[in-house]
């Protein structure tokens, strides 16, 4: 079965544009399958893309210290970020995407904790990029392509 991801991408786009109310409204319209499969896949793809964009320079992934510092800093961005972002899961998720960990390293991560952690981290990293509208469109196109690939 082919999962459609248009609604999920719209919700994510709203989130990245700072339209939180619209993001919540669109998410509330998704079925639990559309959330658990489609939205999780969209978040994972966006997380993959933005993490590599931020932490790979000249083809080299950032060191562990930089990741530890970033996660600690990110957990101070909002009042509840400290609880939403699990530091160990965040570091594993980032280092995994950067290719610094073995292929099975992410398997031990609880799905819900991983989803929560990545959702907030991805929003923070996209905000830090300060995309123009056209840059955000280009980024979303990449996320769409990656998501389609991952769901095939």
């Amino acid at each position: 079965m082919m999962v459609t991801i248009d609604k999920q991408l719209s919700a994510l786009h709203a989130l990245f544009s700072g339209r939180f109310e619209e993001n919540r409204r669109l998410l509330s319209q998704l079925s639990s399958e559309e959330l658990n499969v489609g939205y999780a896949a969209v978040i994972s793809a966006a997380f993959f893309e933005i993490t590599r964009r931020r932490f790979i320079r000249d083809g080299k992934p950032a060191g562990d210290d930089e990741i530890i510092e970033f996660v600690a800093e990110a957990r101070g961005r909002t009042a509840d970020a400290v609880d939403i972002i699990d530091p160990e899961v965040a570091e594993i998720a980032i280092n995994f995407v950067l290719g610094k960990l073995p292929l099975d390293a992410y398997k031990a991560v609880d799905d819900n904790v991983g989803f929560r952690t990545k959702s907030l981290l991805v929003a923070i990293m996209v905000a830090d990029e300060d995309f123009s509208e056209s840059e955000l469109d280009a980024f979303m196109a990449k996320v769409r392509g990656l998501t389609v690939e991952s769901l095939q």
């Binding site: 530890i68 510092e69 996660v71 600690a72 800093e73 957990r75 101070g76 400290v82 530091p87």
Partner: peptide, 8 residues
């Protein structure tokens, strides 16, 4: 958050 930063 001070504790988080300190632990990091």
């Amino acid at each position: 958050h001070q504790i988080v930063q300190y632990v990091a």
